[in-house]
Lab assay of single mutants.
Amino acid sequence: KMTIRVKGKELARRIAKEMKDRNLKVEIHEHGDEVILEIE
């Protein structure tokens, strides 16, 4: 399990899509400006 902190929703969406393309499970937690992606 891996956690990534990202500034900006646009970048977070791009990373999430990339991870889904690799068949990984992604959970997205938004905290205002910061987005936390949990990847399994």
Rank of each mutant, 00 (worst) to 15 (best):
Lys1Trp: 08
Glu18Ile: 14
Thr3Ala: 07
Ala16His: 04
His31Phe: 14
His31Val: 14
Glu10Trp: 06
Arg14Met: 12
Lys1Cys: 15
Glu40Val: 12
Val6Pro: 00
Val26Thr: 02
Val6Ile: 11
Glu38His: 12
Ile39Cys: 15
Leu11Arg: 09
Asp33Gln: 05
Glu10Phe: 03
Gly32Glu: 09
Ile4Asp: 05
Val26Phe: 06
Leu11Met: 08
Glu34Lys: 05
Asp33Leu: 07
Leu24Val: 08
Arg22Thr: 03
Ala12Gln: 02
Lys9Val: 12
Ala16Val: 11
Glu10Val: 03
Ile36Cys: 13
Arg22Pro: 02
Ile36Leu: 06
Glu18Phe: 08
Leu37Asn: 00
Ile28His: 02
Leu24Pro: 00
Gly32Tyr: 05
His29Leu: 11
Glu30Leu: 12
Lys7Pro: 04
Lys7Cys: 15
His29Lys: 12
Val35Met: 11
Leu37Arg: 00
Arg13Leu: 14
Glu18Lys: 11
Val35Arg: 02
Ile36Ser: 03
Glu38Asn: 07
Val6Phe: 04
Glu18Asp: 08
Arg14Ile: 13
Gly32Ser: 05
Met2Ser: 12
Arg22Glu: 05
Lys17Thr: 08
Asn23Tyr: 07
Glu38Asp: 05
Arg5Ile: 15
Met2Val: 15
Glu30Gly: 06
Glu27Gly: 06
Lys20Tyr: 07
Arg13Ala: 14
Leu37Thr: 00
Arg5Ala: 10
Val35Gly: 02
Leu24Gln: 04
Met19Gly: 02
Ile4Ser: 02
Met19Ala: 07
Lys9Thr: 09
Leu37His: 00
Ile28Leu: 09
Ile15Thr: 02
Glu10Asn: 08
Val6His: 01
Leu37Ile: 13
Asp21Gly: 06
Asp21Ser: 08
Lys7Asp: 04
His29Trp: 13
Glu38Arg: 08
Lys7Met: 09
Ile28Gly: 03
Asp33Met: 06
Val35Ser: 05
Lys17Asn: 09
Asp21Val: 04
Thr3Gly: 06
Ile15Trp: 00
Arg5Gln: 09
Arg22Ile: 08
Asp33Pro: 03
Ala12His: 03
His29Pro: 01
Glu34Tyr: 15
Met19Phe: 12
His29Gly: 03
Leu11Asn: 08
Ala12Pro: 03
Glu18Met: 10
Ala12Lys: 01
Val26Glu: 00
Val26His: 02
Arg13Lys: 13
Glu34Arg: 07
Leu37Gly: 00
Glu40Cys: 14
Glu30Trp: 14
Glu10Pro: 01
Arg22Asp: 04
Lys25Phe: 08
Leu24His: 07
Glu30His: 09
Glu10Arg: 08
His31Pro: 01
Lys1Ser: 13
Glu27Thr: 15
Leu11Tyr: 03
Val35Lys: 02
Lys20Ile: 13
Glu30Asp: 10
Asn23Gln: 07
